[in-house]
Simulated assay, not measured.
Amino acid sequence: MTTKKYAALLRGINVGGAKKVPMAELREVLEGLGHQDVQTYLQSGNAVFSTSEKDVHALTRELERAVEARFGFAVACLVLDGAYLRAVADGCPFPAAALEGRQLHATFLSEQPERSRFAAIDGPSYLPEEFRIGDRVLYLYAPNGLGRSKLAEALHKPAVLKGIAATTRNWNTVAKLVELTRD
């Protein structure tokens, strides 16, 4: 049976002492689900694995249930295949190679938002920060970093992303996940 490589992105874990998910235990969870070649990257909820399952929605639901059962709290997860991650990297509208990883971010989304959700965001008022909408991803250029970004704050308001699971990674992490999910 042919396997495919995926990245699992867990939202909001290991931040400020809340929702602790040790990476060794996350690897155990993924292995317990029958996935192979499991590895984690950083402490912020990034894992890569191989499986013959092709349905990312089924993989996502299965992982969310397993994480909640193991750790006792719900965590939104996104499971993305390697081809999608490469398409995100290739489709970046900003000059990624010329920027520091902390200046460029990708917010991965569980579904494609309607453009109308962003109508109230006055892009020019946030310059030099900028964002672009891609395929289930928001690209954010924040030259002073995400922690100081007013545009990131506006993009993550409930009116904009209501009902959509979203998790953000800096460009260094995106590049590493692309590398780790190559077949």
Rank of each mutant, 00 (worst) to 15 (best):
L127P: 04
N46A: 06
V88I: 11
A119R: 12
C92R: 10
L63H: 02
G32N: 06
P22E: 04
F73I: 10
L78F: 12
D90Q: 15
G72E: 00
S125F: 06
S52E: 14
A24G: 11
A58W: 08
A120D: 11
F71G: 04
P95T: 00
R61V: 10
L59R: 01
S125L: 07
A106H: 00
S116K: 10
A98R: 07
A69N: 13
L104H: 00
F94W: 07
R65A: 12
S110E: 10
E100F: 04
N46Y: 07
L42R: 06
D90C: 10
R86G: 06
F108I: 03
S125Y: 08
D37W: 04
A47N: 02
L109C: 11
Q36K: 15
E64S: 03
V38T: 04
E62K: 15
S116M: 09
S110F: 02
S44K: 13
L85V: 11
L26H: 01
Y126F: 15
V75I: 14
P93G: 10
V75E: 00
D90M: 09
E53Q: 13
F108D: 05
C92N: 14
L127S: 14
E68Q: 15
D37C: 09
A96N: 07
V21F: 01
G101W: 09
L109W: 01
N46R: 06
E31P: 01
A119W: 07
A98N: 11
N46I: 09
Q36A: 15
V75A: 08
I121N: 08
K54I: 14
I121W: 11
F118P: 00
G45D: 01
A76C: 06
Q39Y: 03
L26C: 05
V56E: 14
D122F: 08
Q103T: 06
A69K: 13
Q103F: 02
L80I: 15
L127C: 11
V67G: 02
R65G: 03
L127F: 14
S44D: 02
L33Y: 06
Y84V: 11
R117Y: 06
K54P: 00
T107Q: 04
Q112G: 05
Y41H: 13
F118T: 07
L42A: 12
F49Q: 03
T40K: 04
D55L: 03
F108T: 07
E53V: 14
K19W: 05
A97C: 09
S50V: 09
Q36D: 13
E62H: 09
V88D: 01
P113C: 12
A69Y: 09
F71Q: 01
A120H: 14
L104D: 05
S125G: 09
E111V: 07
V38Q: 01
E114Y: 04
F73T: 03
H35C: 13
P113S: 10
F94T: 08
L99A: 08
E31T: 14
T60L: 12
